[in-house]
Design a protein around this nucleic acid. Sequence first.
DNA 1: CACAACCTATATCGGAGCGATACATATTGA
DNA 2: TCAATATGTATCGCTCCGATATAGGTTGTG
Lengths: 181, 181
Amino acid sequence: MDTKLLCLGVLSEGERSGYEIKKLFETRFRHFFVAGFGSIYPALAALAGEGYVTARAVPQAGRPDKRVYSVTEAGLDHFRERLLATAPRHKVRSEFCLLMYFAHLLPPERALAHLDTMVARWEEMLAGDLGLSAADEAALTPGQLFDLGFGRAVVGAARAYCLERRAPLAAALLDRPRAAE
Amino acid sequence: MDTKLLCLGVLSEGERSGYEIKKLFETRFRHFFVAGFGSIYPALAALAGEGYVTARAVPQAGRPDKRVYSVTEAGLDHFRERLLATAPRHKVRSEFCLLMYFAHLLPPERALAHLDTMVARWEEMLAGDLGLSAADEAALTPGQLFDLGFGRAVVGAARAYCLERRAPLAAALLDRPRAAE
DNA sequence: CACAACCTATATCGGAGCGATACATATTGA
DNA sequence: TCAATATGTATCGCTCCGATATAGGTTGTG
């Protein structure tokens, strides 16, 4: 389970609760890793069962207790081992591309709306978590900096391509005879 | 199951066997949808059970029979309905980015090797299925053309970024003191 | 002030999904 | 000769994750 691996990774930077880990996933890893509570809580429970992390209950005023996890020595070792054994993969699952592929079976305005939705989402990402200032970047490790730039490059390219091809696509979708180049 | 949806989609272009569908997935959809036999065969069986496709056994010389599937009228309707009800998503799951994020815990040469592996894979994709000639492109629907360009843009951006940042990353990973910009 | 909307916080379950594997044979290439 | 590689179908079990439940606090707005 890769979720276990990433949880171990973020815990190696400091103790955190499941909820905080989810937040972190959303801000720092959104462009390459998505995981919900349904993945994170079981992952943490499994890690605790294997002795790679320990949990500590922190009472909260008027809120349910927070379970704060810390990585153990064995967990750190395990993490490094697993990292060494992990093969680099990069998988995309895009219903957006699927919809575009069959755009001719969709009302044209629907296809274009999907396109606009994606552009908006990518712009949000670029302006949000991917849009750190230079000052913030100084605090990052080389790898974190690499990932940040990678996200910007890929998401930026997707956004740029969609914007650039919107008009030609609209033309091609709306009137069949005229070619759009 | 999205696999069911895509199977229905490719069958709407003509009858095909499970094996042929897998081939098609690998060549046409690799950059946005990955599915193995373990997804495709159950998907086809389910579609047949629902009456959305019909199967026909084609005897082969010296080979197991081929089961060729065709989409039914009901299947075509269902496909269009499902397309209309599908939300545009675009999800990335990248162990490569994960490895890069924690590159400081890896031997530097290992991190760089991972990077080179990915560059090679992306170049393969660009030269292969994403590298159609202009003549071939004329036969595509606007949506197919859009997806092809999208794949080129995104995969190309990933490749370019990795090549561009390789040297700075290597420098930063090898000697900590010097900043790499 | 009432009510909606959203945030913090944890947890489970059922079903989808897919990697690994098995089987059977023919061709290609070293 | 032996190892790959290609065609072809199929299943099993583990992983995974979306949806949902629970519970109260805070913020915002008409």
